[in-house]
Structures are given as C-alpha cells and as structure tokens.
Amino acid sequence: MYIKEVAKKLETSTRTIRYYEEKGLITPAKEENNQYRFFNDEDLIRLSTILSLREVGLPVEAIHSLLKDKDMRVDDYLNVQRGVLYEQWLELKDMIQTLDLMTERAGKGDSVTNDLFGLAKQLKTLKAMRKNWQDKWNFDSQAHDYDQSIKMHGYKFNVHQDYETALNKVVDTIQLNSGDLFLDIGIGTGNLGSRFIESGAKVIGVDQSEEMLAVCKEKHPEIETRKGHFLALPVMNMQVDAIVSSYALHHLTDDEKLLALEEMDRVLKRHGEICIADLMFLNEEHRQHIMQSFREEGNVEAIGAIEDEYYADRSQLVDWLEKHDYTVETHQFNSILSMIYARKHVENER
C-alpha cells in the first residue's frame, strides 16, 4: 500500500506520515526503481499505534521510546496502547476527584486558600508517582534467566529462601471459582499466576517488563498478559475477584506501596481477595533489629541487598487495609518474608 492510500485509510496526511518516518518511528520499504514508499500490514499497525498515542497527548520522544523494538507484534502494539490509555484515564480521574474537592471547599470562603494549594500539591505528587516509576533493576535483562536464578542456593543472603513455600501458601489461601477473574501483579515469568489456571479462573498477568511478559506468555499461553505496573493497573474498576503479587511490591517506595493498594482496591470486586507474598519486615523496630544482626555478623551482602530495594513495613500495609474495610491475616515465613491476606468487606455486611 502506497503512502496516499495509507493516509486515506488512517485518516491522516502524507506529510504526517513522512514526519514520523523522519523521526525514525516507522521505516517503510522503498521500491528500488522509483523509491516509492510501500507499507505492509505491520507498518499500518505501527503507524496506527503512533497516531493513537499522539491523539492522547504523548510526545514523539515518548512514543519513540515505547516503540523502540521495530519487530513488535500486533498484541505488543495493543498492549502499549492499552497501558497508555489507562494511565491517561487514571490521571483524569485523579484530576476530577481533586476538582470536586476544590469546588466543595471553595464554596466555604477565602479561608480555604491553603486547602486548595494543598490539594493541588497532592495531585501533582500523585501524577508524578504514577508517571515516574522507573525500573532501576533492568528486569528485561533478567527475564530469560529468572527461573534459574531463584533456584540457586548457597548465598550468604538468599532472598528466595522459602520461595516455594510462600507461593504454595498463597495458592492454598486464595479460593477461586471457575470463571473468576484473577490478577497477578508483577507476574514475571508466571510462577505464581500459572498455578491458578487449573481452577478455571481467567488469569491476567501484569508486568512493566516486556521481556518478562514474553517469557510468561511462552511458558503459559493461557495467561493473558498486559503491560502495566502497580501504580496504573490496566484493568477497569471492580473487575477482578482476586489479586496476588509475589516478590514485586518491594520495588516500590513506602508512598508508592500505599498508592498500589489504592489501585488494587479500585479494580477489586466486592468480597474480593488480595494476597501479597513479599520481602518485608514486621515493623520499623523489627527492621532495625534484623539490620543490626547483619551488621554484627558482618553480612554486607544482606545489608546491600536490603538497602538496594524497599522492603515493606508490614504493619503499615495492614493498617491501610484495615482502615479501608478489609479483614486481614498475616503469615511470617522467615525474618524477611511475609504474606498478607486481605478480604474486602461489603457495607451491608457490617
């Protein structure tokens, strides 16, 4: 298909298409005899994705980063578009909620000026958290060796001690029925989410790493993989029956963890369940005690590993869940690994 035909089909201009080519976003083939651009089906899908992302306000540089792989498949393009649209939608939701609060308080007189400033600052912080999370650990590079690395033993500090025990405990705790919608956040290569396939539930795996999702899909074709992250889940409100996460939440700061719980709460149905198995301390006192023990042992490997990430304060997570009407149970596997199980209340149950 030639450029004029493409422009007509996608309701854009030939000038716009040439601009995206100049920016390196598309590279259509050119006929040898006349150098006319010729677009195949993959080119059309890629160009359609670019136009869609521009329509929702993404700058060209950001799109270039998202579509850096020129060999992306159709489902990859759709995953990118969906993830971006969800982030845009959540940002709008946050803005509307803030405007509602501002409107309510503005009606009370000039004395609420500081309140309005505080709400605006809070919205700015929230937008930054959703947008600015970065994978400083480069999980794409770990994807193909991940399953082997978690089976290694003999380290002076083994973060995967009791790994299988923890995953089995999560499986035994969550009760699913056939047809339920099940969400695994930070699914990685699918080691936890895949264990729920036999229940007859529809399993959705969310991860920010495209390579992790690719490995997961190769291992477990039954799992629907979606690119996304804790702070902007690519799922509509009140859609899922159960949420699990293992060895992923500790990549968020404390403030980000609380926003992640808000996102889980948003997508969870009434009576829904959340189960998190992760690296965490019981509370700040417990953290200080464990760290002091490692210092006395001279275990710099353990200290370095913990300080490189954001092991949770379990008491803070439990407190948030209980304040938001969840019944909470906990289980401790070892000094740095715990499980939190929370079941959502319904108003008329109380």
Rank of each mutant, 00 (worst) to 15 (best):
D75L: 06
T12F: 00
D41G: 03
Y36F: 12
A242M: 04
K9M: 12
D172G: 10
I174L: 09
V80S: 00
L167T: 15
N283P: 02
I340H: 04
E347P: 01
L78E: 12
D278I: 08
K219V: 03
D41K: 11
E224K: 08
M280T: 05
V346L: 06
N237M: 08
I50F: 09
L268R: 05
K217L: 09
S246P: 04
I303Y: 10
R18F: 04
R270C: 12
W89R: 14
T189E: 07
K4W: 06
D319C: 04
V74N: 09
H289Y: 10
P28E: 08
V159T: 15
L231F: 03
I274L: 12
Q35K: 13
K217R: 15
M238D: 14
A106R: 02
R343Q: 14
Q142R: 14
E87S: 15
L231W: 06
E297F: 02
Y247N: 01
S338R: 07
Q148L: 13
L101E: 14
A7K: 02
D319G: 00
I187L: 00
E349W: 15
E307L: 11
T189H: 14
D115S: 06
Q142G: 00
K227L: 09
E297R: 11
L44A: 10
N114H: 07
I26R: 08
I185A: 10
T125M: 10
S338G: 15
V74F: 13
D147R: 05
K219Q: 07
